[in-house]
Simulated scan of single mutants.
Amino acid sequence: MSEYVLYGGKGGVGKTTCAAATALGRARAGVPTLVVSTDPAHSLSDVFDTPIGAEPTQVREGLDLWAVEVDPEDRIGRYRGQISAALEDLEELGITLDGDDLDDVIEAGVAPGTDEAAAMDLFVDYMDDPRYDCIVFDTAPTGHTLRLLKLPDVMESAAGKLITVKSQVSSLAESVQGFLGSGGDDEPDDDGPDLDLEALQERMARVGEALRDPDRTEFRVVLVPETMAILESERLLSELDTHGVPVGGAVVNRVLEDPSPDCNRCQSRHRRHRNRIEEARERLSPPLTIVPELQEEVHGFDAVEEITGHLDGSQATDASR
């Protein structure tokens, strides 16, 4: 059983519901579990129908199930002082990163303002938290998810470049101070927030290693039975393969089953869904899990529990039925 389960896919396909249901299933099995939303449009609170904030919250008393909606702004503040200071030091000494290096730093989100960077940094905190044996991630829509998965490698590389540049700047500054006879112990300390670049580099290396470990991690793609969703899922699966992220399966959500025999529209929609599922089986490599459409929207603990019964161990209930 994987330590880390990540759900991804296009917006509006039910990733949050699947993540919540999987986390509930693990907790019901006696596994202390945390479900994390990294989607800026958080909806875990709505799905569980309970307040969830930026710190892990126990979803229900007596059940080892916790949930958190990541607030990236809190973590982004850690990056601000060190990166700004590093770039200002370079500029004052007439040194600049070349275009590619600077692009790497900005793209990596080491500079302030990238939600995905904060989410990946928090990943390490949750990995190291002894309270949880399983962490389930509800990721943002596909484009954000791909940036999220690329970030550990890019940030590790960018932090390494900044470490090298900072070392060069420090050596040059010490030489200048020695020549001029200035500087020393009376220099005021920087009061701004600080970021240990070596620690950041090590943390990102750990995240990258965990994301690629098939014994610890599985990514599940969520889609609905529509052609456009199938095509986007196919592209996402290709990207996951490129980045070496192990895929545990694909979830076809909101499938109409057992339509009323006297409802022609329901019968037509049912046939369309079965055709799309067959198309998904042909185009997508991982096994499919089918989650039926509920009579009501998934809102509240009981509704999540109903979805739980169709996930984790339900791989046999695919389109071959």
Rank of each mutant, 00 (worst) to 15 (best):
V247Y: 03
L284A: 10
T217F: 08
D215E: 15
Q267A: 07
Q267V: 03
C266F: 05
E232M: 06
R283K: 14
R254H: 04
D258P: 01
E218N: 14
F219S: 15
C266V: 09
G248N: 05
T217P: 15
S260K: 04
R276G: 02
C263H: 04
D262W: 12
D241F: 05
Q267D: 00
L284H: 10
V224K: 06
L288P: 11
D262F: 15
I277N: 15
S233D: 06
R283G: 09
H270W: 12
S268T: 08
L256Q: 01
R276M: 14
P225Q: 03
N275E: 15
P287I: 07
H243M: 12
N275L: 13
S238C: 12
R220F: 12
L236D: 09
R281L: 10
L231G: 04
V251R: 01
E278D: 13
F219V: 11
L236F: 13
T289W: 00
L288A: 11
L240T: 10
L223C: 14
V247D: 05
A280E: 03
V245Q: 08
S260V: 04
R276L: 06
E232A: 10
T289F: 02
V255W: 05
L223E: 02
G244A: 11
V252K: 00
H243N: 06
E234G: 12
I277E: 13
R274Q: 14
A250G: 08
Q267I: 06
R254I: 00
R274P: 01
A250R: 07
H243R: 11
P261G: 00
R271F: 11
R216G: 05
M228P: 05
L237M: 14
P287E: 15
R281S: 11
T289Q: 09
D258S: 09
V247T: 11
T289K: 01
D215C: 06
R254Q: 05
H243V: 10
R269Y: 09
D258T: 09
E218V: 13
I277F: 10
E226F: 00
P225R: 02
H243C: 06
R283M: 15
R216F: 04
I230T: 03
G248K: 05
R220N: 14
G248S: 06
D262A: 11
V251C: 03
R269S: 06
C263W: 05
S285D: 14
Q267L: 12
I277T: 13
L237T: 08
N264V: 10
P259W: 02
D241G: 11
R272N: 05
R269Q: 11
P287H: 12
P286E: 11
L284R: 08
S233Q: 05
V255P: 07
R276W: 03
A250M: 11
M228W: 06
N264A: 15
L231P: 09
L240I: 06
L237F: 09
V255H: 06
